[in-house]
Amino acid sequence: MSADVEARLRETLASLAADVEQSPSAYRRAQATWRRRERRRRVLLVVLATLVIGGADAVGLWVLNSGPEHAPVVFDGPAPVSR
């Protein structure tokens, strides 16, 4: 009985599957989709990188700009005496 059911199952599934056909444009549409998504991913990556770098630059400039106007940047001790 089990072998009979198995044979009927195989035959039915094969009949159903045999009727399925791919449309001629299937590949073109799938390729267009994966290329579009890849492009979008790259654009998004570039935008994110630009935002992060731009943000870091802006913060750096703001910190430098918010210090005292005539304060020495590196050395804040007295100037060495020349002999």
Partner: peptide, 18 residues
């Protein structure tokens, strides 16, 4: 991916249908 599409897509479509 193109080669895979040519060799597998129809069978996968049949699988999805079943």
């Amino acid at each position: 991916v193109t080669r895979l599409f040519a060799s597998e897509a129809v069978q996968l479509q049949r699988l999805a249908t079943l």
